[in-house]
Structures are given as structure tokens and as C-alpha cells.
Simulated assay, not measured.
Amino acid sequence: MAVVVGVLTGSITSLIGASGVMIIVPILTMFFHVSIHNAIGTSLFVDVIASLTVSYSYFKKGNIDLKSGIWIALTSIIGAQFGASWANKMGAANLSAVFGIVMILAGFSLLRKGFQTEDDSSKPIGRFLNFNKEYQKIIAALLIGLGIGILSGLFGAGGGVMILLALTVLMSFPLHKAIGTSTMIMAITALSSTIGYASRGNIDLVIGSFIAAGAVIGGIVGSKFANNMIEKTLQKVVGIFFMAMGVIMAAIVIIKSVNIH
């Protein structure tokens, strides 16, 4: 089952640049009975391998903006360490509940983007922020990276969905280049967060290795088909999936809380 989860994770990462944490964390906590902290640490470990595989495939197609990606990754590393430190101080129930909410919001964002018309998508926020000068773009990339890093370390998200939204909405990236750049940044950010979780012993290397093996397969196959996929349809499906998983995780926390009291 772990390998199958990995294949699904690699496929999702390659097709929309989303972090595998959205799939791995709920499955590890619900079916493998792994603690939320270990589940997040393990998901980050898998994210590093899956993202490197996918980003290399996109790089070969010329769909990575190295310049912007490096600036974002620079501060995301710092933010990831803060996030990982704060996550370790949060209770498992609180972390699960907040993670569920993040999943719902991320899913809603993807679903909304999938229903946008061409007129809507042609009006990016980045146009109003007016990043015309090089130093403005660099500052924006550094601030975006810091925020993404904190979210990555806190929720183990590797920043996938947040990076993708930031690149497409704030920085007006074409979708394919946004996905390629997102996975490259995600690999770097997830590595920083993984180190933070590993130092606290919150990674299951056995399960993680099986999932990672499947993620490599899914990432390679998914990347080959990515350019032929209809992005909006995929965004709708994955958005609904994320929202459903988020609701399930939040519901489990509520049920456990009611049973305890």
C-alpha cells in the first residue's frame, strides 16, 4: 500500500506541483497509525525525493525559472526551520485540526482556479502589484519564500500549493513553468524542513522509503503526460480531493475530542 501511495503522490506532484503531504499525512495517520509529527516528517522526506525527480523532468523541458526560484528558496529554507520548531511545540490534536483547515483552504483555491474563465485568469494580482523593477521582484520573491517556508515547516506541506498559487497569482507565471519552478523550490524547502524533523526523530524511514520509491515512479510517468493534461479539469478534481481529506481530518479530531470529554 505504501508504494501505491507513493505512485499517487509522485503523479500529483508532477501534474500540478502539489506537495505529497496532502496525501501522505492523512493516510499515514488514519491507516498506518503514525503520529501526526512523524507523518509530517516522513511526508517531507518523500517530498524531497519526489520533487527532485519531477523538477528534473520539467527542467529538461525548459519549464523552470531558476532565477526567481533560487530567491524564493533562499528565504524558504529559513522559514522552514521556524515552522518545524513551532510545529514540535504544538499538540498533535491542534496540529491535525489546523492541518485539516489548511487542506480545505488549499483545495478551495485549486477548485476556484479550475472554474476561472480566461477573462478572470488574465487579471493576475501581480499586475496590480507592478513588479517592474528587478529589486521589487527580488524582494517579493524573498518575502514569498519566507512565508512558504514557515507554512512548509509547520504543516509539512513543502509549500507546493502555496508556491504554485504565489507564482501564478502574484508573479504571473505560466502554469507549466509555475509547476516546474514550484517543484524545484519544494525540493529545497522540504529538505530544510526534513532536517528539522529528523533532528527530533520524527521520520519513519522504513515507510518513507517505500512511499518514496513509488513517488519516483509516479513522478517520472506523470511528468511525461503533464503537458498533455487539461489543467483546469485536474485542478477541480484534486481541489475536491484536498477539501474532502481536510474535512475528514478535522472531523476525526472533533470526534476524538468529543469521546475524550
Rank of each mutant, 00 (worst) to 15 (best):
L143K: 14
L142F: 13
I248G: 01
A250T: 04
M245D: 02
H176P: 05
N228K: 11
A198W: 04
N228D: 07
I144C: 03
L111M: 13
I64D: 15
L66K: 06
E134R: 07
V34P: 06
Y56R: 10
F210H: 05
A50D: 01
D47T: 15
L151D: 12
I104S: 00
S76H: 06
F115L: 15
G126L: 09
N63E: 09
F241Y: 15
V21C: 14
Q116E: 15
K137Y: 09
L175P: 00
T181K: 08
A50G: 09
S85A: 11
V253L: 01
G6E: 04
G208F: 10
N63V: 06
V7M: 08
A198D: 01
V46W: 09
F128A: 14
L74P: 02
S57M: 11
S182P: 10
Q81Y: 11
I220W: 13
I195A: 11
G158E: 00
G201M: 03
I101Y: 05
S121D: 13
F241Q: 11
G100Y: 08
K123I: 12
L28A: 08
K232P: 03
M243C: 03
T42N: 11
F210E: 03
F210T: 02
H33K: 14
T117R: 13
I179T: 11
L44V: 09
Y58G: 07
A178R: 11
A141L: 06
D119S: 14
D120F: 10
M90L: 07
E134A: 05
W86F: 13
V216D: 07
M1I: 11
S257R: 07
I36S: 12
A141P: 07
T181Q: 14
S122L: 05
A73Y: 04
L66W: 01
V46A: 14
I217T: 06
Y197H: 10
I101F: 07
S193F: 08
Q136F: 07
L52H: 09
V237A: 14
T194N: 07
M229T: 12
K89Y: 03
K177C: 05
D47F: 06
H33A: 08
I101H: 02
H37D: 07
I240D: 03
I188N: 12
Y135D: 05
Q235V: 14
V25S: 02
I150Q: 01
L175H: 03
Y135C: 00
F82A: 10
I138K: 09
S122V: 01
N130I: 10
K67E: 15
N228Q: 05
P124D: 08
F210M: 07
F131G: 01
S193R: 11
F31K: 09
S209R: 12
